[in-house]
Computed example of a mutant assay.
Amino acid sequence: MGDDIESYTTSLKSSVLQYRYENGRRYHAFVDDDGKYMFPNDEEENDRLDLWHHIQTLSLSGKHHLAPIGDQPQRILDIGTGTGIWACDMGRCSKECQYPSADILGNDISPIQPTVVPVNVRFEVDDVEKNWVYSQKFDYIHSRYMTCSIRDWPKLMKQSYQFTKPGGWVEFQDYDLHWYTTNKDYNVTDNPFFRWSQLMAESVRKYGIEPDPGPKLKQWVEDAGFVNVSAHVFPIPMGTWPKDKRLKEIGAFNILSMLDNLEGITMRALKTGMRWSADEVKVFCAQIRNALRDKSARFQSNFYVVYGQKPQDAVS
């Protein structure tokens, strides 16, 4: 995993690898808190996360970021790196990602990242909601897809500001759980998928976790002290109903990721937050799968990208 001598996370404790197993799925073991992270960390879930990497990249027309970070960033931090696919793509000297000068560090509560990585990419096991301890600041701090994962977003923004170099950039790419229909004649309240989005949001809120960070990112970034803040919103369809070719492709991958691992992303949240049984969750997921195949529903959500710069004359 590679040590980072500039971080207090200098070793991978054996307890981190003592995963929890529930209903045939594997979950993290970084902290003794069932509500810390609701989703699995096994291979099936990792495939879903990598598929979301593709969806997000498609949404950004092949780009991995929108912030104008320049050609030679020296230090990059990827918050909640997940499978590490974004960090590895940024580290590769490809046509799209030419940052060979950058030292790229990704952190996550689960050690699920690959061991064979570009020479300028490293990973550490860490909880981004704890106090950060780094001896050097970063040129660029990146975060994405932390929906249903973070309790204190303002604290995360403040720590990002603290550990960004003057003139450096932060970028937050995220969603909300609000799915809506673009078909004005469709009764969304009768759809199990719409009910699922409401139940998931209600469940994670019981643990103090924010399910809808996307629309709030811009204000949080500005409140933290960043300037030159820019916000962008991209539609994320569910299914192949859009006429636009790129949106149709995004929708196809989106519904694939949902159908393939629906129980995995639903089970713990509804069992712990709503006190459902495993059988009740499975029956509900079957209803959702059927509902998702209804093209007339035309469900869509939003993908938010917000970036900002730390003032050049900032003291800290």
Rank of each mutant, 00 (worst) to 15 (best):
G62R: 01
A67I: 08
W52M: 14
S59N: 10
D71T: 13
Q74F: 02
A87H: 04
A87L: 09
E96F: 05
Y99H: 14
E45K: 05
D47L: 10
D47T: 09
Y37I: 04
P68R: 07
S59E: 05
S61L: 12
T83M: 06
K36G: 00
H64S: 14
P73Q: 02
K36I: 03
R75L: 04
E43Y: 10
T81S: 13
Y37V: 02
N41H: 08
E96A: 12
L77W: 00
E43M: 05
L77V: 02
N46S: 15
L60H: 04
L51R: 14
G84Q: 06
Y99F: 15
C97F: 15
Q74L: 15
W86T: 10
P40S: 08
C97K: 00
L51Q: 11
S59C: 15
E96V: 11
I69L: 03
D34G: 10
H54Y: 09
H65Y: 15
G35Q: 07
P40M: 09
Y99T: 00
Q72V: 09
D71L: 13
D34T: 08
G91D: 06
Q98K: 14
T57I: 04
L51A: 12
G91E: 08
Q56M: 15
D42K: 02
I79N: 01
L77M: 06
T81W: 05
R75H: 12
G62F: 00
G70E: 04
P73Y: 01
D89F: 01
D78L: 09
I76K: 07
Q56H: 12
I76H: 05
E44C: 06
I76L: 08
M38Y: 05
I69T: 06
A87D: 07
N41M: 04
H65D: 00
Q98P: 00
G91I: 04
Q74M: 12
D50P: 02
D34K: 14
E43Q: 13
